[in-house]
Design a protein around this nucleic acid. Sequence first.
DNA 1: TTAACGCGGATTGGATCCAATATACAATTC
DNA 2: GAATTGTATATTGGATCCAATCCGCGTTAA
Lengths: 222, 222
Amino acid sequence: MLKLDPIDVRQSASAADLVFEALRKAIVEGDLAEGEHLRQDHIARLFNTSRIPVREALKRLEQDGLVTNERYRGTVVAALSSAEVEEIFEFRALIESEIVRLAVPRLTPEHLAEAQRHLQAFASERDPSLWGEINRNFHYSLYAAADRPYHLQVIRSSLDRVDRYLRAQLTLTDGIGRARAEHQAIYDVCAGGNADEAARLTRAHILDASRSLLAFLDQRRR
Amino acid sequence: MLKLDPIDVRQSASAADLVFEALRKAIVEGDLAEGEHLRQDHIARLFNTSRIPVREALKRLEQDGLVTNERYRGTVVAALSSAEVEEIFEFRALIESEIVRLAVPRLTPEHLAEAQRHLQAFASERDPSLWGEINRNFHYSLYAAADRPYHLQVIRSSLDRVDRYLRAQLTLTDGIGRARAEHQAIYDVCAGGNADEAARLTRAHILDASRSLLAFLDQRRR
DNA sequence: TTAACGCGGATTGGATCCAATATACAATTC
DNA sequence: GAATTGTATATTGGATCCAATCCGCGTTAA
């Protein structure tokens, strides 16, 4: 009998899924400015599809808080107030420090090796547009050891909302320098197996970025 | 000149919004069993509408994790494994204890009065089908004082996922009795202004329900 | 007997068409 | 000239239609 690798041939990505992922990525990475109108017809043409899958994608983005919709007026990229940004960073500090605490006792050499790769990439990468992605990967490589899929999902969702601001903050004077130093410190205590200290440093790292970012936002918005 | 109260006449609820809310409520309250198929055409007829708004509602529910969708195979009410239920309760224990810690110093007499009303309703209500709603309201009346909209939104979302299981747990032997006692204890320390103790009791309350529920689920699923 | 095959209805995904509403701008009135 | 009104166009929300896929069931062949 013929034997083949049982690859799932079912293409699970519908047009709506593709549009959703593309728009999500564009918003998270800051390629779509906050307040920008997302016209159904325009997006549909970009993807060579009709407005139906576009509308489904926009509904999903709305549910994630990445866009807002007003009936008959359309969908715009969500804009966050300083207070909202601050609250989300506070939330991240709470949950990400806890996930690190859970992760540290479970860290394997493989986890640490991957984290170190991202650490080095972060140190050597010159292109600021890549820092955000590397930053995410570094933290996620540690969080993965916690083996808490729901927590990770919530972390992803909360970071998605503020990542474009965070990426702007990284490019500020000293933003990248402090991030590098703090990452190294977090990595060191993780490798040393000190869960409480890793949690404390992660919390401080997030709140530090928050303070720097809010100072920048408040200044820019005046 | 004619003067009228400037009421916003714009009806913000689209058909998709109404369908979404109705389905969400039905799933959260356990009226739709896990694994049940949600046929677009059937739902559309129920609401006297076409399948288009139904599909948008289903996409939003999927984004919230309340249903799962497989291409060309349809949408079913999500079923959670015991491990997933356990993780979500662990998550709730973390974030709800923290929100209580933030809320206590900000509690006004009005907040406490509302919490006490829910406490009494919880104590006197005979109809088990209403316990879940009252339970939510009691906790939310305390959480509201924290004034953290994003945290509250995440709390709502996580509770939505497990509320149908929690409601089943409340009707178990002693489930409602322990919940009543623990609510009273939480209320007392909140009214006394002891934030740390309120957080500790909230955490214990959630983990207590989790243990009881998991024992029940593991037994039922065998 | 049973497993593979194929057909037809059921269901979902997507395209196109129509209705409802908003917005920009010209026309009009004071 | 400014405010208001009417109108044309753009855009969204929803309905209907078509295509792709799944699934149950009967048929057939080994």
